[in-house]
Design a protein around this nucleic acid. Structure first.
Lengths: 198, 198
DNA sequence: CGTTAAATTAGATAGATATCGAATTAACAC
DNA sequence: GTGTTAATTCGATATCTATCTAATTTAACG
């Protein structure tokens, strides 16, 4: 009965990097990858005092990176290479790295842009940067109802509630495939069809 | 013309772990694994100020973990997943980890033991711990010349220069295969034959 | 040119942590 | 038991670094 190890979460991975992000601890891991050692030995090898080594070993032990085997009074430590490999797999693919950032809400950026370009319900100006313009256009297209067709005049009218240059904005909405036009009739497209580039 | 990437040395690997051993930077890597972003965007996503993000990106850039693409005034960053994979391989095998500790001189421990058990050229006592006894025996056997045979009496005499209990020490030298005996004649074995356990 | 926007650099500060010595615990030897 | 040795825990300190604000660069735009 072998259980499939679940991929480490963000804080576990962070803890892992912190554990190895220290000269003494990285050396410890290196030494213990070769052979098991007592605390006393390790202290001599690293030119450190026993308490310091004990402190470092405790951190490594939290992550199961090392295992301890007591023998009488002396404690022998050795590397738990399985744990090392397991954590290592998490870094292997950038997909897995990308999956770590679910705690980061992507909307924060959008909200910040909207807040800085909207004032009293109107669009202060059209952002020059493509990236920001995209945020504004996504907001703008949501002012239209889906499943409804608008004559060009209605489109202009609605846009002009927010900004006088309805021609530019209307053209951009088409360019990013947020709206579509046929014979002077416009309608909003479903979000999956929107494009990132015009 | 592709060059084989040389395995990272100790300090590079340490730098790598330090780079990722920070919540903000680890999130940065996670985000940039998904898509390229400007500094401004990243600052908004992480609820940090631009200078802070710049600082973090600089650290990641030192290791080539991220790449920058300037576009006018704004700098777009993205993950360099090749560098990530390359560094990742170093952790993959504990052999490679073990090879990192060449800066750690293994003799330090031995010297410390010798220093604490030798006084005025004589052995104060025989260490109880197997590990330390081994160090002493290695030192003791080097007092014999290689390629020369010693009658038991000569062996005892030589050992007694250092410690009265020649019987025990002689037996141990045989046990660890540092010396060998045949018909009352002793000789030193070459170092590769020595054993770690008696 | 001056202005503006984005990024970086510099300097200051607060929070984290590596290291040590002292005290404590655990295990063994006598 | 007492004494001894290895390890850990505790408390203090000194170093490192993440973050901020302010100042400086860089590039685009009128």
């Amino acid at each position: 009965m072998s259980t499939v190890p679940s991929p480490p979460d963000f804080s576990t991975l962070l803890q892992f990097f912190k554990a190895l992000a220290n000269e003494s601890r990285l050396k410890l891991v290196g030494i213990l990858a070769q052979r098991e050692c007592s605390v006393e030995e390790l202290a001599a090898l690293l030119h450190l005092k026993e308490p310091t080594v004990s402190h470092h070993l405790a951190k490594l032990k939290e992550l199961n990176l090392v295992q301890m085997r007591p023998d009488g009074n002396t404690h022998f430590y050795q590397l738990n290479s399985e744990a090392l490999l397991a954590l290592n797999k998490a870094i292997l693919t950038q997909d897995q790295m990308a999956s770590l950032v679910n705690g980061v809400e992507a909307e924060v950026w959008d909200e910040k842009v909207l807040k800085s370009y909207l004032e009293a319900g109107r669009l202060k100006e059209i952002p020059a940067s493509r990236r920001k313009r995209l945020v504004i256009l996504k907001w703008l297209v949501r002012q239209f109802d889906e499943g409804i067709t608008y004559p060009e005049k209605a489109v202009n009218q609605l846009i002009q509630q927010y900004h006088p240059d309805s021609a530019t904005l209307r053209r951009e909405l088409i360019g990013y495939r947020m709206m579509q036009r046929d014979k002077g009739i416009y309608w909003r497209l479903p979000e999956p069809e929107w494009q990132e580039t015009a």
